[in-house]
């Protein structure tokens, strides 16, 4: 399945993290379990030489050498994670072109939208397909978080501040808008809908809406 931008970036990064995480986590957990089984006590097995003795301070052990190896390997792996994250972050926060600007205002408990020409809607947003949509998100009361999970992006809606994210629908259809920050009793129901339609349908819809205004 092809993901629409910017979800493609997010998923690519997520798969990279997941693969690495599963491999490393798998190895370390296996190491833990196998070590616990392999070295477990069996009747007749002698105590290790340096076993703790009551009242005696145990000897210190460990080599600086291994610490360096471990740190070096870890740092090389996590630096790829940082680089990957920063480049995906750049894409998530930079609209590819000017696009269509939508002002979004979260309030208890729905989303309000405003098109550049002043048309306003609540909860339902109609957008043209294959065009960059830039959301300018704020709130008029408490904190909310404007999220469009299909596009794997979201941003806080904070009173007095404006946050920006963008999406680009590659196929027509309905997409959920959810609130990801507890905002009071209506939080769970703060669900909106984005409807992506063809450019011509969109133009027509906007024209009608403008007339009704």
């Amino acid at each position: 399945m092809a993901y629409p931008p910017p979800a493609d970036q997010w998923w690519g990064l997520f798969y990279y993290f997941s693969t690495l995480g599963a491999i490393i986590g798998g190895i370390v957990i296996a190491f833990l379990v196998l070590a616990a089984i392999k070295y477990r006590y069996k009747p007749g097995k002698p105590e290790p030489e340096d076993a703790p003795k009551p009242g005696t301070f145990p000897k210190d052990r460990g080599h600086l050498k291994y610490l360096f190896v471990l740190s070096f390997v870890t740092l090389s792996i996590i630096s790829t994670l940082v680089v990957g994250s920063f480049s995906a972050f750049h894409v998530l926060t930079t609209p590819p072109d000017k696009g269509l600007d939508i002002e979004v205002t979260g309030f208890q408990w729905a989303w309000g939208f405003k098109y550049p020409n002043g048309v306003q809607t609540v909860s339902n947003l109609v957008i043209p397909v294959n065009q960059t949509i830039v959301f300018h998100v704020t709130s008029s009361d408490v904190k909310h978080k404007f999220g469009v999970p299909y596009f794997k992006t979201s941003i806080d809606a904070i009173p007095g501040q404006v946050g920006e994210i963008w999406i680009k629908a590659t196929s027509t259809g309905d997409y959920d808008i959810l609130c990801y920050e507890l905002c009071g009793v209506g939080h769970a129901g703060m669900i909106g809908k984005i409807t992506a339609v063809s450019q011509s349908q969109f133009n027509q819809w906007l024209e009608n809406a403008t007339k009704q205004k």
Partner: peptide, 8 residues
Amino acid sequence: ASIALDYQ
């Protein structure tokens, strides 16, 4: 801790 993944 990945700023990009954390957006979701």
